[in-house]
Amino acid sequence: MISGGSAIDLRRVSKRFGPTTAVNGVDLVVPYGSSFGLLGPNGAGKTTLIKMLIGLLPIDSGQAIVLGHDVTLDRPRIARATGYVPELPNIYPWMTVSEVIWFVKNLYSTWDEDLYNKMLKMFELPLNKRIKHLSRGTVAKLCLLLALAPRPRLLILDEPLTGLDPLVREEFLDGVLVLTRRQDITIFFSSHTVGDVEKLADVVGILYRGQLLFQRSMETLRGAKRVRAVLRDGATPQWRPEAIISDRQHGREWLLTVPNCSPDVLTRLNSENSLTILEVVNCTLEDLFKDYIKGVRENEGTSLEGPSVV
């Protein structure tokens, strides 16, 4: 055991594929019992980061400690306490559903028969069908069952809802919520769909071009507001709130996205800057996500249609 305080502790973790840096010095701490949603556009490095977390990809530099064990040294111990649902499940296509369940069940000593029966009933899985004949949604539900039934301490979901219809998405999320009622389970999931993250996450991180841009609690983000201010002729911004998510200026128009936007912050913003107009708009997590990515892209001097990374 190396670290006892957090379920996931990444220290300057990096991964390169030839000349491309897929994950660049990511520092990340996920406390036990929390639900961490990793947001990021396609190609941001989410899957690479998750594969390193579960030992499917070697870490080029840095250290990854999962459930108190170093990933590079103690993968089997981590696997025993971790459930993993990938974006594209690779279960043996020739096995039937009941065979896969029997196979996985025999590899875990912690298999929970009651939870398994509950989820089997909830998902209505066809036990005698071969995996290769199942729809994508059914395979995703089977994967979730296989990940949850051994009662993992850590559940890792790598964009599991991609390509699923709304009904299956709902069933899948309900399945995850069944488990989240337990206090000792930590959930780490990635998605590029903000709505899914909003439903499950306590803490949200945004990964972009292999770098973790921020890590904030959902509560903080729910209090975020978009502020539109118009500066007086010739005036420049004099005071900015702390930890702003986005800060853009087009002529006299000044657009800010502010977390924890309290009346005090607005009063100070109005009094310390020379403004003619100050408007406040509530914003969703999706707006925040877009603002953050746009802000970073503008700082980098790239267009929105710029090439994707990784």
Binding site: L56, P76, A79, R80, I91, Y92, P93, V104
Partner: peptide, 14 residues
């Protein structure tokens, strides 16, 4: 070839 080794490697056996 069928990527099932990736599934197996996420399970507990060494």
């Amino acid at each position: 070839a069928d990527r099932s080794l990736a599934f197996l490697f996420t399970l507990p056996p060494t």
